[in-house]
Simulated scan of single mutants.
Amino acid sequence: MEELLELKQLLLGGNIQSALLLVEEMTEMSKDDKLNKIFSFSVILLVHLIKQHAEKRSTKSWDTTIRNVVRQIKRSNKRRKASGNYLSSAELLETLADAYKSALDAAALEAFEGQYDAEKLGSMVDRTAIIDQAMSLILGNVE
């Protein structure tokens, strides 16, 4: 909100150059917020996929969470006014790869009632297959 008030003052004062710089800064802040949301939702998605792969089972709760976070990733990635997405497919894949370690740490607390550490749990699953599945879900039509 402070930024909007500052922008208004800059425009009213005729300081267009500073106003444009502030608009750029606000745009970056907005994009960073979107990217952080996508990363957080990616961790949740990967946690549940890791648990499914490790335990070779699923639950209605896990399935519902997976569907919901995929929707949230798609929603967060979609540009509202301008068409397209904030992240390309390659950037989404990079985000999932970055989120994997955090997801593995969290999944280790939940899978098999927490009896395995992240390293052991990681050796029980195929990282590439899980990330590929996550990408497929994100790029597919999940309703």
Rank of each mutant, 00 (worst) to 15 (best):
S58E: 08
M124L: 14
K101P: 06
I130K: 02
D117M: 05
A134Q: 05
G14T: 12
M1K: 06
L35P: 01
N141A: 09
L96M: 11
T65D: 10
D98H: 10
Q72R: 15
I130A: 01
E24R: 13
E28H: 10
V70P: 00
K101Y: 03
T128F: 07
T27L: 10
I50E: 00
N85P: 03
L35I: 15
I38W: 05
A106E: 15
D132F: 09
E113I: 11
S76P: 04
G13A: 11
V23R: 05
G14V: 06
M124A: 10
N36A: 13
S102P: 00
F112S: 04
M135E: 08
E119K: 11
G122P: 05
N77G: 08
S18T: 12
L7W: 06
I16N: 02
L109H: 14
G84R: 07
S61W: 13
M29T: 07
A129V: 05
N15R: 14
D63L: 12
F41N: 10
Q72P: 03
Y116H: 09
E113S: 14
E113K: 14
S136G: 15
S89K: 15
K120N: 07
S61Y: 13
T59E: 07
R67K: 15
K37F: 12
A97C: 05
Q115T: 14
E91L: 12
G14M: 09
D117R: 05
H48S: 00
F112L: 07
N77T: 05
I138K: 04
S40L: 09
E119A: 14
L96Q: 08
Q9N: 14
A111V: 07
L10A: 03
E28S: 11
L137G: 02
S40P: 01
S42C: 07
I38Q: 02
H48Q: 06
L22W: 08
A129Y: 07
K81F: 14
D32P: 00
K74M: 03
S40H: 10
A54S: 12
A19S: 06
L22V: 09
L139Q: 13
V23S: 03
K34G: 02
A82I: 13
Q72E: 15
R80S: 11
E113Y: 14
S30G: 12
L20C: 08
L46K: 06
N141S: 12
A54T: 03
I50H: 00
S123F: 08
V70R: 01
G84A: 08
S30F: 15
S102N: 09
N15E: 15
R127L: 05
L21K: 14
R127E: 15
K8F: 08
E2D: 13
N15C: 01
A111L: 08
V43W: 03
F39I: 04
L35K: 15
E91T: 05
L137Q: 02
K51Y: 00
G122N: 13
K31N: 11
K31P: 00
I131S: 01
A106V: 14
E28T: 14
S102L: 04
A107P: 00
E91G: 02
K74V: 02
Q133W: 01
L87Q: 12
N15S: 12
S18W: 08
E25H: 05
